[in-house]
């Protein structure tokens, strides 16, 4: 709060005497966040150094230092989960970015058919991920599923989506794409409406094709937005648990165990609190690095504008 008391630029000065009020406005939210997020975070850091399996003992069985981290990193299921996470998130976000951007271009305009199309396309955003997993479990089921039935009309014999280890990974990617492409679509659509119409007009007067003006005008202008969207999507996809839970339960075997799902089973099925905390802090380090990068980029763009 000392910051507010320091000499501020003139236009700020008259606000300064209000600061006790403003602090009072801020405190309730900070209080809740510190209690609900800060304390468990510290607690989790402590847990990561403890040997504690809740089903064996109601309290910790001692300090093990970095033992849990070593144990997790060497665990085969964890390694497989990391690999799965990279494959699933990596392919899903590439498809989502391309598809979402493409659809945003195709569905632009203010005519009523386009407005209806846009309304339909954003529906998956409001559907609970648990329900999305459920409905795709029905769609992809090898007996009652609609997907293979529809594929048979175009002469394709569909695979046993959820029963085969490789196709189960593809299924998880499909559901991620189904749920999240609308987000990319929506954000890029909003970004497109922000590009001044005159830019395209003068470009076409200068003889530029649509493709050229897309590459030279839209892409540079949308680049910050696209990068932000990509990284937001990457983090959310890595963190997704609900849809995998209802779609595959991590199976068959460990085929669709992702990092989040692995930590979930470790912590809330096996109740191995120490290992789960260590695994989640490894995950956290990665997420923090990704977020720090986004934030650094954002600040750079804001100051350069």
């Amino acid at each position: 709060m000392t910051v507010a008391n320091q000499p501020a630029p003139r236009h700020r000065r008259k606000w300064v005497h209000d600061w006790p009020w403003m602090v009072a406005f801020v405190v309730p939210a900070l209080f809740i966040v510190v209690i609900v997020q800060g304390y468990p975070l510290l607690f989790s850091a402590y847990l990561s150094t403890q040997d504690w399996i809740l089903t064996n003992s109601p309290s910790s069985e001692g300090f093990v230092g970095f033992g849990n981290f070593v144990k997790v990193a060497q665990n085969e299921v964890f390694q497989r989960a990391v690999r799965n996470s990279i494959i699933i998130t990596g392919s899903a976000i590439v498809v989502e970015m391309l598809l979402g951007t493409g659809l945003a271009y195709l569905a632009s305009g203010s005519s009523w058919p386009m407005r209806i199309v846009r309304t339909i396309l954003i529906l998956p955003l409001v559907i609970a991920p648990v329900a999305a997993g459920t409905l795709w479990r029905m769609m992809l089921n090898s007996q009652m599923g609609l997907t293979n039935y529809l594929l048979s009309f175009v002469g394709v014999k569909g695979p046993d989506w959820l029963g085969n280890a490789d196709w189960a990974v593809v299924s998880v990617i499909i559901v991620d794409v189904w749920m999240a492409t609308p987000f990319v679509f929506l954000v890029v659509s909003a970004g497109l409406t922000g590009i001044p119409f005159e830019l395209h007009e003068s470009a076409s007067l200068d003889g530029a094709t649509r493709w050229q003006s897309f590459l030279r005008i839209d892409i540079p202008l949308l680049a910050p937005l696209l990068l932000l969207t990509l990284i937001f999507r990457m983090l959310e996809s890595l963190l997704s648990l609900d849809s995998i839970y209802t779609l595959t339960l991590g199976g068959p075997g460990y085929a669709t165990f992702t990092m989040t799902y692995y930590i979930y089973t470790l912590g809330l099925r096996s109740f191995n609190l120490g290992l789960a905390a260590a695994a989640s802090w490894l995950f956290m380090a990665f997420a923090a690095a990704a977020l720090g990068f986004v934030f650094w980029l954002q600040q750079r763009w804001q100051t350069s504008q």
């Binding site: 468990p40 989790s44 963190l239 789960a276 989640s280």
Partner: peptide, 27 residues
Amino acid sequence: WLALIIFVFLFIRFYPRITTVIPYFLV
């Protein structure tokens, strides 16, 4: 300072929630 606060809030939005779920359960 404002940027720092925004970063903390943004971080809470996107960090692996599974990290705090188990301690939260214990609390």
